[in-house]
C-alpha cells in the first residue's frame, strides 16, 4: 500500500500519545499487585504466612482465612502473598541475566561475523540439543538443589534462544544503508552496535526479556513442585501446589489459587510482551 504509506504526516503534527490498550491495562492490573506483594511480602499479609496452628487443620475459605488454611493451619492467602517473592525475584533474575548475555553475544555475533559468530552459533546448536528440563532436574538434584542454583542453570539454558533471536534481528539491520553509512563515516564498532543497531532490535530484546520471565516462572515453579527448588516449608506457589494436593477435597482453594496465580502471571507477561513488541517496533526499523 505505497499510496497510503507514502503520505507523510502533516508538517507540524505533535506526537500523539497512544492510549494503553484494554489488554495491557488488564495485564498490569494482574502484575502490579503481584510485584507489590513480592516487594513487601509478609508485611502486608493479614496473617503470618509461616505460623502453624495444627488445631485448625485444613479449613475451607471463611471470614478470617479468606482462602482457607492448609493442613498445618497456615493461612493460604498470606502464603500466596509471601510466595510472590520467589515467583518474581527468580524469574526476574533469569530474565535479566539471559537478556543481557543473549543480547551482547547476539549483537557481537551478527556484527562481527567470522570465527566469533561460528563459535557462538555452534555453541547455541549444542545447547539446543540438550534436553533442558532433564539437565535442570539432574543438575539441581546432584548439586543438592536450591533456588539460586536453579536460577543460574535456567539462565544458562535460556541464553541460546536469546542469542539466536537477537542475532537474526541484528543481521537484518546490519544490511541496512544506515549501518553502512555509519561504517563509512568511521564510527567505532561499539558505537555502531550500541547506538545504531541496538535501538532497532529493542523490540526483540524487550520481548525476550518478558518471555524469559514467563519461561523461568513456569520452570522454577515446576522445580519447586518436584521439590527441587526452594527448601521445604517456604511459601512458594509451586511448592504449595505440591504440598496441598492431599487436602484437595478439604480446601480446594489451597491448590486452585496458586495454580491460578502462576497461570495468570505467565499469561499477563506474555500478552504484555506481545503488546510491547508491537508498540516499540512501530517507532523503529524492525517491523513484522
Amino acid at each position: 500500500m505505497s499510496q497510503i504509506a507514502g503520505q507523510a504526516p502533516p508538517a507540524a503534527a505533535p506526537r500523539k500519545r497512544r492510549r494503553l490498550g484494554v489488554s495491557v491495562v488488564l495485564c498490569l492490573a494482574v502484575l502490579i499487585p503481584i510485584v507489590i506483594s513480592a516487594v513487601f511480602g509478609s508485611a502486608i499479609a493479614p496473617h503470618d504466612p509461616a505460623l502453624q496452628d495444627p488445631t485448625l487443620g485444613a479449613l475451607a475459605p471463611n471470614g478470617t482465612y479468606w482462602l482457607g488454611t492448609d493442613d498445618l493451619g497456615r493461612d493460604i492467602f498470606s502464603r500466596l502473598i509471601a510466595g510472590a517473592y520467589t515467583a518474581v525475584a527468580g524469574p526476574l533474575l533469569v530474565a535479566l541475566g539471559t537478556t543481557l548475555t543473549g543480547t551482547v553475544i547476539g549483537l557481537l555475533a551478527a556484527y562481527r561475523g567470522g570465527w566469533f559468530d561460528t563459535v557462538a552459533m555452534r555453541g547455541v546448536d549444542l545447547m539446543y540439543a540438550l534436553p533442558a528440563m532433564l539437565v535442570l532436574i539432574i543438575a539441581v538434584g546432584v548439586l543438592g538443589g536450591g533456588y539460586y542454583v536453579a536460577v543460574v542453570l535456567l539462565i544458562f539454558l535460556t541464553v541460546p534462544t536469546n542469542i539466536r533471536l537477537v542475532r537474526s534481528a541484528a543481521l537484518s539491520q546490519k544490511e541496512m544503508a544506515y549501518v553502512e553509512s555509519a561504517r563509512v563515516m568511521g564510527l567505532s564498532p561499539a558505537r555502531i552496535i550500541g547506538v545504531h543497531i541496538l535501538p532497532n532490535v529493542s523490540p526483540t530484546v524487550v520481548t525476550n526479556f518478558l518471555l524469559d520471565f514467563v519461561g523461568a516462572l513456569v520452570g522454577l515453579s515446576g522445580l519447586s513442585f518436584l521439590g527441587l527448588g526452594v527448601p521445604a516449608g517456604t511459601a512458594d506457589w509451586g511448592l504449595m501446589l505440591a504440598e496441598n494436593r492431599a487436602i484437595m477435597d478439604l480446601n480446594p482453594m489451597a491448590i486452585v489459587a496458586p495454580a491460578a496465580l502462576i497461570t495468570l502471571t505467565a499469561t499477563a507477561a506474555t500478552v504484555l510482551a506481545d503488546a510491547a513488541y508491537k508498540r516499540i517496533s512501530q517507532a523503529g526499523a524492525q517491523r513484522d
Binding site: A177, Y178, N200, A285
Partner: peptide
C-alpha cells in the same frame, strides 16, 4: 575522506534517531 549517499532513502537513515 570518502562519503556516500545510497539508493534507498528509507533505510539510509536510522529510524531510532
Amino acid at each position: 575522506v570518502v562519503q556516500c549517499v545510497f539508493q534507498d532513502p528509507y533505510t539510509s537513515l536510522n529510524p531510532s534517531h
